[in-house]
Write a protein that binds this DNA or RNA. Structure first.
Lengths: 238, 238
DNA sequence: AGTGTGAAACTTGTCGTACAAGTTGGCCAG
DNA sequence: CTGGCCAACTTGTACGACAAGTTTCACACT
């Protein structure tokens, strides 16, 4: 890696330390600097990017947290092996358009239909009791969106738990209440009558799922879950 | 949040900036400082932890990259909405027993069956070409486990890509080659004849999935994918 | 010629000082 | 009451200095 000048833009659009971190990240991602290679010393980076040592150090701190380098006093910063896979991250803030929500529902169709079928096969009496509690909790949330959102999430989580497979549980957790409740929060601002009708419909769909799980009907549970999510989808995209 | 003294250990086990970042992270994770709250100013943090401003700034840079705070010149650092959820993390090292692998396959049944059905509905000619390439690549891996494992993963990933839904792609990526190939590596050490028979069977199953996607047969793609994974499952648990 | 030791040069970690750029709140004038 | 100005506050950058750890080179000894 050469020591060519590569000054950072000082247009104020981002802090210099962000800029340097992005530059260095690009080198690593491009493979210009490879796993095991040492980054240039701070003094060389200062020259290269035309910034103070403070900026370099902050930038390197950023790379450390990002898992891109590790640094030893007296030795330098070494590029880490790039992770072959990264965690699955789901951020509610990414859901901006109807298409975004529909994509999420399509994804949940795969997850939750399968989880419900397994729940019907594997649920224990305790888990069934928890499902009933969650149903009751959702019903108690009528007219109270924040309670309903939390109860909605809890019910879906309980279904995943009844599948007795940690992957389904972990994934539901990674989605969180906001994304599970996503289609419903869209209706939070609608008029009260339409909201009550919608709420009752969702409650009925929930009840259908739990009933199938209760009678150990895997196909029924899968169908009820798909109906539930497909209905949510259809409300968004008729 | 008080300004009580809370000096950082200087035992050399970690850099001070790491120590401060961990302390601040703990406050945020514990909910002591809540989303939207402002962290104390750098000067106050210097006093609190008994370190220089450089250390504080580097620590805060760490928190920024970790997505825990965002910082504005003149205003301060504000705690971001704490993810109510944590990323979904899948580690091949966790797969120690047959039950573990079966649980993974059950999970993948939900994901990949749905993804294949969507791929059949949505695939583009380019994506279909990529599927064919991946098929060829897998075939070229006969007798070469490391190539076959990578090609297996690539094929499954291409199917997820053809679903044109980033959630499926991201999740497959989070699983990575090792977990996607998991049932097959179990056979890596078996005798060669059995391995060749098994390889040919897997290749046929792959081909069936791609054929259904080619003819835009969502039900067929779903069935072929379920067959593929269910066969893998059955090989482990007759 | 080979090996070991010590010192200098190099590299990262921390501290302190100073100035620039942006924000906030209080006070005063209209 | 509202708006403007200024001082205090807050973050961003730069610089110099010293501490702690690593590496390299030169010299001395065997």
């Amino acid at each position: 890696m050469t020591s060519l000048e590569d000054p950072i833009d000082r247009d104020g659009s981002a802090s210099l330390s962000h800029g340097v971190a992005d530059r260095l990240t690009a080198l690593i991602v491009a493979g210009t600097v490879r796993p095991g290679d040492k980054l240039p010393a701070e003094s060389a980076l200062m020259e290269r990017y035309g910034v103070s040592r403070t900026v370099i150090r902050e930038a390197v701190s950023r790379l450390q947290v990002a898992g891109l380098v590790e640094t030893y006093r007296g030795k330098g910063s070494f590029v880490l092996t790039r992770p072959a896979q990264s965690p699955f991250v789901a951020d509610p803030g990414e859901l901006r358009t109807t298409d975004d929500v529909v994509a999420l529902i399509d994804f949940r169709l795969g997850i939750e239909v399968e989880a419900a079928a397994l729940a019907a096969q594997r649920r224990t009496p305790t888990q069934l009791r928890r499902l009933d509690e969650a149903l009751g909790h959702f019903s108690a949330g009528a007219g109270k969106p924040s309670i309903a959102i939390e109860a909605d999430y809890t019910l879906h989580l309980r279904i995943a738990e009844a599948a007795n497979n940690r992957y389904f549980v972990d994934l539901l957790r990674s989605l969180g209440p906001t994304m599970i409740a996503m289609p419903h929060t869209r209706l939070a601002a609608a008029d009260e009558t339409a909201q009550a009708v919608h709420f009752a419909r969702v409650a009925q769909e929930h009840s259908d799922i739990v009933a199938a799980i209760r009678r150990r009907d895997a196909l029924g549970a899968a169908a009820a879950t798909r109906t539930h999510l497909a209905n949510s989808r259809a409300r968004l995209r008729p």
